[in-house]
Computed example of a mutant assay.
Amino acid sequence: MKLVRFLLGLLLPPLGVFLTVGVGPTFIINVLLTLLGWLPGSIHAVWVIAKHEEQLSRDGSVY
Rank of each mutant, 00 (worst) to 15 (best):
R58Y: 14
L56S: 13
I29D: 03
S57Y: 14
V17A: 02
I49F: 01
M1R: 14
G9P: 09
V46Y: 02
L7V: 11
L32I: 12
W38C: 09
L8C: 06
T34F: 08
P40K: 02
S57T: 13
V4P: 08
H44N: 14
V17Y: 03
I28L: 13
F6N: 07
M1T: 07
I29L: 11
E54I: 13
A50V: 06
G41K: 02
L3Y: 00
R58V: 14
L12R: 04
L8Y: 01
F6P: 06
G60M: 12
G22K: 06
G24D: 06
V17W: 01
A50H: 07
W38Y: 08
P40H: 00
T34N: 03
L12E: 05
L32Q: 07
D59L: 15
G37F: 05
L33E: 05
R5E: 03
I49G: 04
Q55L: 15
V23H: 10
V17D: 06
G37S: 07
L56G: 08
G24P: 11
N30Y: 01
S61R: 13
V4Q: 12
G22T: 13
K51H: 12
V48N: 00
V23S: 15
V4W: 08
D59W: 14
S57D: 14
P40V: 01
L8W: 00
R5L: 10
V31L: 13
P13Q: 05
R58I: 13
P13D: 06
L11A: 13
E53A: 09
L35Q: 00
S42M: 09
L19P: 03
L33W: 00
P13V: 10
P25K: 13
P25G: 15
L8Q: 03
F18E: 14
F6W: 10
L19N: 08
A50D: 08
V23P: 14
L12W: 08
L35E: 05
I49Y: 01
T20E: 08
E53P: 06
W47V: 13
S57A: 15
V31N: 05
T20D: 05
K2A: 11
W38V: 11
I29C: 09
L15N: 09
L36P: 02
G41Y: 00
G22L: 13
R5M: 10
G9C: 10
G9W: 04
E54G: 10
P13R: 08
L35H: 02
G22R: 07
G22N: 10
L39P: 04
V46P: 05
T34P: 04
